[in-house]
Design a protein around this nucleic acid. Sequence first.
RNA 1: GCUCUCGUAGUUCAAUGGAUAGAACAGGACUCUUCUAAGGUCUUGAUGUAGGUUCGAUUCCUACCGAGAGCACCA
Length: 557
Amino acid sequence: MNVRATIEKSISAALTRLGVETPKVSLDLTGDLSHGDYATSAALAYAKEFNMAPRVLAEKLVEMMGEIAGVTSIDIAGPGFINFSVDPKIIWANLESGRSEPDMWGGNPSLIGKKIVVEYTDPNPFKEFHIGHLVTNSIGESLSRLVTFSGAEVRRANYQGDVGRHVARAIWGLMQAGGSAGDVKALGRAYAAGAAADIDDSPAKKEITDINKKVYDRSDTKINELYDEGRKASLDHFEELYALLGTKFDFYFFESETGPVGKQIVEMHIDDGIFKKSDGAVVYEGEKHGLHTRVFLNSEGLPTYEAKELGLSKLKHEKYAYDTSIIITANEVNEYFKVLLAAMGEIFPELAAKTKHVSHGMMRLPEGKMSSRTGNVVTGESLLNDLVIAAKERAALSRADDIEQLARDVAVAAVKFQILKGGTGKDIIFDRERALALEGDSGPYLQYTHARTCAIIEKAVASNVVVSIDTTAAVSDLARLTARFQDIVLRAQEDLEPHLVATYLINLAAAFNSWYAQEQILDGTPAAAHKVAIVDIVRQTLKNGLWLLGIPAPKKM
RNA sequence: GCUCUCGUAGUUCAAUGGAUAGAACAGGACUCUUCUAAGGUCUUGAUGUAGGUUCGAUUCCUACCGAGAGCACCA
């Protein structure tokens, strides 16, 4: 049992002996290391129940807890907090375990045996990979890695809209302009033209509706040709981006598959009253769950987003019998998702219960909101490319062996960190100038710190310095902060919040850099062995932490 | 109009109902004859308004003000 659990149990036992039936104990990492490693506000919370002053209750609890294995001091502070300091030997042993099993460092077994599927990115063929897809991708990849690090068996899924009105618009645009469907840039322009023309009472609107039907039933040879070529070109192009971003999907689902399945599901549940016919469409009345009515099959008989999503839930579970399905989308679909989950709850209650919807905010650039309808947009791809070019200038001055690769790594870090440093769900203001500056709280800052640690280790190895932790040494704040890694990772996984890892890594890197500036590590004395060992575990923490964020950790910068 | 998010330094983000509201950027002052200056040190500066619940509120509740998203055949 780890120290944290021991302390929790001890507090809980003390409260039970005082007569609390089911004590609710919160044991927190202290906000300030001068307060020790863990703190509880139990005495404050229960003071009223016992009609005692909080500090008096705190003293009583401390007395009843007595000695706790692995804890060297228990102090009462402030209004009645009880602070616990962990035995330095335990902290050093913890860090030593990280050095002996580096790949496991920070991991936990809380999800062992669980099957989890994470669906994210979901770009639409025939359209640009826009900046919103960078957000979903960054969050989804990080969440995938967080649950992997907790022992879950993970599958990554990508769900792509290869049918639907956007496709018809692009094909309409291609037919007008005569561009090649194999050229993704031409596809982007064709979509923009189609979207612009697709307005009420225009002849184009009817033509696009007609094309849309033909895409579904594949009745037109010319359209099939444009469709097949465009679809392949888009998907191939997306793969290049996934490689750059460091994502590999296990499953690809397409709306062309989920559509028919979803349609069938909806049609099977009209007679039993789950769905209703209304104005030629088939709808789900969300009002019974305090929501609103949504169309599942339109009056053309075609499945909408909602019906396709129902089909997807079924297909996904057939492919992989998951315990949890995490779906990442932009928060603009939150309301639809609630209706969808309500409908799913009636049809597939067991699947609905296993589904977790994580939504993220919109990514905004200082230039304003981007829309692929206007044609001239900053796409996810162009943003990445700009960053790579900017990073290259600085990379040229670095000691990296492969400047091109470093520039890509730094660019990916700049984007991903910006996305992941804030809580999921809030809008992300992406300031390109700031990201390009590669300074301050940023992905490149973490990479730089990691590269520094690598350089020290390399030098230590070259000069045959023995690396080992002195378990009798006093613990520094840097060592204690490093030892918190596991607690942070576990919470980030439980809350599905990558930003907890991001902010932790910034704090750790700052603590390390500060120490580095005032300490000569390779000082030629026996003390170097211990100091290098600390550098080594900080290095591993940064490496594993960056991995959890989906950010590459180059060894040289 | 209704529903859902969200209002924290000049800006971009933190703070599971707890201790002195933390960082970074921008501004000012320093710091490379020492292991990577993409670094470090010092410094100015914030909880939209009004109530409520609580021993304690940035966090929970109500109202208002402000921003964003959504409100049936697009996703």
